[in-house]
Amino acid sequence: MARTPGKPVVDEKSATASGGEDDLKEATPRKITRRCFLGTMTAVGASTLISPSHLNAAEGFEGWPNRFGMLTDLTACVGCRSCEKACNEANKLPRPSAPFDDASVFNDKRRPDAKAYTVVNRYADPKDKNKFVYRKMQCNHCNEPACATACPIHAYNKTPEGPVVYNENLCFGCRYCMTACPFYVPAYDYDSALEPKIVKCTMCYGRVKTGGIPACAEACPMGAITFGKRNDLLKLAREKISKSPDRYIDHIYGEQEVGGTSWLYISGVPFEHLGFPTNLPKRPLLEETKGFLSAVPLVFTVWPALFGMCYAALRHRDEAAKEKAETEKKEEVKHE
């Protein structure tokens, strides 16, 4: 079913450009409307008209040349947690139980949660057991965010500037976005009964939109977090790697993972040692479900015809049998 016969597969090029997404979105409901069943699908079709079409714009698509990103240089990070503190203050998050200069938090591997958009974790340096490597973790603001693909209410939005933002007013809390996010980012505030919501880094969208830079990048005393145009950051990262090949491994994490992310990382140790998922495909995750969704109109058009025919054949057989029985009966009467 992944690649359904009878429906041309969207070719790779148009799929990675944002057109791919639109193709998919329109193809599915529009065809359904034609076979409008129970009026249901009319409404689904109508959704195509209503829903904004800029969900998941993709890398390589010339439409967003100004898209921003972040570059974290993990070799520069010293684990001071200034970024955590800055994020906490800038976003008015609740005060954590342990202060930001408490190094004991490094004993556990933490993840972003309902009270923190970002956390820094400590890992043993595989090259030198006495040294540590630190990794800052937060939403990667994917080019084709799986969270946005997953959400049935379109509560996520990939903004033209780059940040992936979430709208609490739409969310009903199914948490499929959490299941889908390949980087284990969205958190849920399970403790709230009335207004639980997804919590995740916004890439300081409010600041970015008005020409500012994200709080964590501003706060980092080591300059480990750089904010800028994603294209420039890629160039910068490449430069850094080629200038000091001993310092860095030759991989920009986020350049290609799941179709690329706005947040990029360079590191001195292989990423799998730092808890980064390394088993991810290079193509956007929405590609995985595209084949299935393109089969939907097929089912809506072929099934009624097929099963309708079966039923018609059955009726025909029944009626023929009945007629035959009746003629036989009549003949019997005649013979008598």
């Binding site: 599915t28 195509t48 969900l55 693909t149 959400c151 379109h154 299935f292």
Partner: peptide
Amino acid sequence: IAFGTASVLFL
């Protein structure tokens, strides 16, 4: 209210 038409869960 809003339609995540690319979502399988929507379907």
